[in-house]
Amino acid sequence: MRSFYGSQLANPLMLGTAQYPSPAILEAAFRDSKAAIATVSLRREGAGGAGQSFWQMIRDLEVHILPNTAGCHTVKEAVTTAHMAREVFDTPWIKLELIGHTDSLQPDVFQLVEAARILTEDGFEVFPYTTEDLIVGERLLGAGCEVLMPWGAPIGSGRGLANEYALRAMRSEFPDTPLVVDAGIGLPSHAAHAMELGFDAVLLNTAVARAGDPAAMARAMAQAVEAGRLACQADPIEPRDMATPSTPVIGKAFLS
């Protein structure tokens, strides 16, 4: 089993902590999803100290913490944010996001590779939010990343795996690297799809947090990733163009 910088995940689900209707619903969603990793962020602290109560709640979830650099558009900004996150969350893990396009939130892969190299040399364990581009993937591994997290579709779009062909190619090209579909998941079937392709985990947030019943959707996602993983391990049949009867033909009664 491929590991994430030496850590085995009890469950192949990484769940975001944003956009839930209430802290209680966030906690219920985490409990029901059995997510092994919680993604978190850093923002300006107000006078009320809202960040401190959030931090206490996240610690109580007893999951791995994966801070992100969401919203960063430059290498400098992302690297500084990563340093701040490492100190606050006390982890070398960083979900490296370098946004290149305002509408699609597509990663700026050129800056991503540069920032990944700087952070790896500084002792970070980088989880890069990237595209499905194979050459970028190679460059990220060359920069020291040991995990790749290609998007399924734009963040928050819920469109599922927009480019299955490319994700299959990634799985084939990087057989030893943990791969995570990050972003674009809207339904449990999308999550199962990623796992059926042989991905090691799925990272999602909006699909659960913005569902009418986040805890129920969290349960559905947990079952979906488990089903997808089992299906991949079970060596599925190949699709074919023509029918093949599943009921034996030999022994059929002559009744016409």
């Binding site: 978190v40 300006r44 809202a50 960040g51 606050v88 969350f89 947030n205 909006t206």
Partner: peptide
């Protein structure tokens, strides 16, 4: 001066 704290994130 920027003072940042843990916050929800995806």
């Amino acid at each position: 001066v920027e003072i940042l704290a843990p916050m929800q994130g995806g």
